[in-house]
């Protein structure tokens, strides 16, 4: 488990508020909550990764 810190990685960000995110991971802009939910679900399934809600308008997809 000690190497989990290295393995955990943000693969993508799905956000409603484009001005609150930036950086290295791909960012997907959603216009509605439903769209955000759907995009996150698809990306999570495609990337075999977990979806986490930062509760600030952004979802992140994290590989554990």
């Amino acid at each position: 488990m000690s190497d989990s810190a290295v393995k955990n990685k943000i693969l993508a960000v799905i956000t409603l508020e484009m001005n609150r995110v930036s950086g290295g991971a791909p960012i997907f802009l959603a216009t509605t909550e439903e769209e955000r939910e759907k995009t996150a679900r698809y990306l999570g399934r495609i990337l075999d990764a977990a979806v986490h809600d930062l509760e600030n308008g952004s979802y992140i997809i994290v590989a554990h």
Partner: peptide, 9 residues
């Protein structure tokens, strides 16, 4: 335990 983002999950 952890955070779960998706409502359906």
């Amino acid at each position: 335990i952890m955070t779960v983002g998706l409502k359906e999950m």
